[in-house]
């Protein structure tokens, strides 16, 4: 119990100490607030327009979750198709790799031309980034099914469908969940990149756009506030997915 408290308190303490040091350095050196604002100034910038920034966070998160969902809905069936059929494997694998190695920033303008709706375009961009880990991990898990269990299924005359649904998919669950965690972080990265590239303004714009906007106006404190929100969102996504996979794996593996 004591150990657990230390594990929580020690990083928190060092974080607070770093913030104090930062504030002290800013006050002592009189550095211009548009170059380096102190934590207090950042907090005030957040308080100034908390509603606006939180709305922007919500916009970014909705792109993130839509992209993550889409990555799962595309990645898992494609991985299954690859495991079930070598023709499907030959057809899918090269495209997945091409998609993975091509920088999304370079594809984004094309996506924006093709898809008129800015939200849909951003979701597609973020999906391109988030797709690969969940897809490749699931494929690896499906392929790593214990050969003895596969033999057992064969001996009992299992169909290809039974093999996928009763054996390969459950066996790949830990791999899928590990991939999902990585994809969750990447979906957020993808959403931010998509916002940068599409530059979608207006009420529905996300945090990344707010960062760009604040940058143009030299509102550095607001930039930091938006950035801190993004980091917090990333941490939260990671924590939630880690918790979900712990719960599922504790039950099933």
């Amino acid at each position: 119990m004591k150990r657990k408290r230390f594990d929580v308190l020690a990083p928190l303490l060092s974080f607070v100490a770093a913030l104090c040091l930062w504030q002290a350095a800013v006050m002592l050196t009189h550095v211009a607030p548009y170059v380096v604002p102190g934590p207090v100034a950042i907090l005030m910038a957040f308080a100034d327009d908390a509603a606006g920034l939180l709305r922007a966070l919500l916009a970014t998160l909705s792109v993130t979750f839509a992209a993550l969902l889409l990555a799962v809905l595309l990645g898992v069936p494609m991985a299954c198709a690859m495991a079930a059929n070598r023709w499907a494997r030959a057809a899918i694998e090269p495209w997945a790799v091409i998609l993975q190695v091509t920088p999304v920033v370079a594809i984004a303008p094309l996506i924006i031309i093709w898809i008129g709706n800015p939200f849909a375009a951003m979701v597609v961009c973020a999906t391109v980034v988030a797709f690969f880990p969940v897809f490749s991990n699931t494929a690896a898990g499906l392929a790593a099914t214990p050969p003895e269990l596969l033999d057992l299924f064969r001996l009992n005359g299992a169909s290809r469908t039974q093999e996928i649904f009763l054996l390969r998919l459950p066996a790949s669950l830990p791999y899928f969940l590990a991939g999902l965690r990585v994809s969750g972080g990447l979906a957020l990265v993808g959403a931010v990149v998509a916002e940068f590239v599409t530059g979608a303004g207006g009420l529905a714009s996300g945090l990344a756009f707010r960062i760009l906007e604040a940058g143009y106006r030299l509102q550095t404190a607001r930039m930091f506030a938006a950035l801190a929100l993004l980091s917090a969102a990333g941490l939260a996504i990671n924590a939630v997915l880690a918790w979900v996979s712990r719960k599922i794996l504790a039950r099933s593996v």
Binding site: L149, D151, F153, L155, N156, G157, Q162, A171
Partner: peptide, 29 residues
Amino acid sequence: AGEIGYVFQEATLMPWATAAQNVALPLRL
């Protein structure tokens, strides 16, 4: 199919399934 029973060196059970579900597998298939 199913008329040959096979026991491997390791128990090779499905870790996500209960003992009963593991035993039921050949009939369930």
